[in-house]
């Protein structure tokens, strides 16, 4: 875990790293993250040459490939502005693993410099923007699923719930074993599908038992997994990325 100890003042500009899952499957969540930042008066730059942080190859053990992909991202953020990532998993990869991935290489210094500017979106909204929200939505019971990477790798168990707590009409319910993994784990869900299925089954049951009408998450991997399970069972509970949820209820 490498949580940031000291946050900078609010910058004029930030970079946005959208992540490949959002790019392909949930672009609206990325755009809503950008909208939230822009509403705070921050100019958001989205380098068009961004692709993927390299994490899938990294956790699969293919580090040469992961390093090449990561190296291609390092060039995209030349100015010293913060880099906002709407995912604890990709954020954790870039903040925690980039320096280790490039240790001893010519890119070591650059990787460390870039990783020091990585912020997960809710972290940045809470600790740097000091975001204040005014809820315009209907009353709703919501469960928060903080991804394991946001919670443990980035030390951000509180930022998501603290933003939701600002929404006056939202009742935040806590599911049993809220801190337990949903079973996604990237390629884990593919390599060990049955174990992953048992885990997501328990997660959906817990969210449902808590009386949530919706669950909100910081990570689209978890969302794809949990929401896919709910949809498979034709359950009414729907998932939403926290950026979209916050934007939708406050705009």
């Amino acid at each position: 875990m490498t949580p940031v100890k000291c946050y900078p003042p609010r910058p004029e500009k930030v970079y946005f790293f959208g992540t490949c899952l959002i790019d392909l499957f949930y672009p609206e969540a990325g755009l809503d993250g950008i909208r939230l930042l822009e509403r705070e008066g921050i100019e958001v730059l989205f380098p068009q040459d961004q692709t993927c942080c390299g994490q899938p190859a990294h956790t699969s053990g293919y580090h040469d490939e992961a390093r090449a992909v990561a190296a291609a991202q390092l060039d995209l953020f030349p100015e010293p502005w913060p880099i906002i990532v709407p995912s604890g998993s990709c954020g954790g990869m870039m903040r925690t693993h980039y320096p280790k991935l490039f240790a001893g290489s010519a890119l070591e210094k650059k990787a460390s410099e870039v990783s020091g500017r990585i912020y997960e979106l809710t972290e940045f909204l809470v600790h740097v923007c000091h975001l204040r929200l005014e809820d315009r939505g209907q009353p709703e019971k919501v469960a928060m699923h903080t991804s394991c990477s946001a919670r443990r790798e980035m030390g951000l168990a509180e930022t998501g719930p603290s933003l939701l707590a600002q929404l006056g009409q939202v009742e935040l319910v806590e599911q049993d074993r809220a801190a337990e993994c949903c079973g996604f784990g990237g390629t884990f869900a593919v390599r060990h599908p049955e174990i992953s299925a048992a885990m997501v089954e328990d997660k959906t049951l817990a969210i449902e038992a808590a009386g949530a009408e919706r669950f909100v998450t910081t990570d689209c991997g978890c969302m794809m997994n949990i929401d896919g399970r709910f949809a498979h069972q034709k359950k009414a509970v729907k998932g939403e990325h926290i950026a979209s949820y916050l934007w939708r209820r406050t705009s």
């Binding site: 392909l24 672009p27 609206e28 989205f46 299925a197 997994n225 949809a231």
Partner: peptide, 19 residues
């Protein structure tokens, strides 16, 4: 994946395009 979950559908437009 789809024995237990529905398959994720790619969005019509990527974030790159939406931006």
């Amino acid at each position: 994946w789809t024995d237990y979950r529905t398959a994720p559908k790619p969005a019509g437009k990527t974030l790159h395009a939406m931006i």
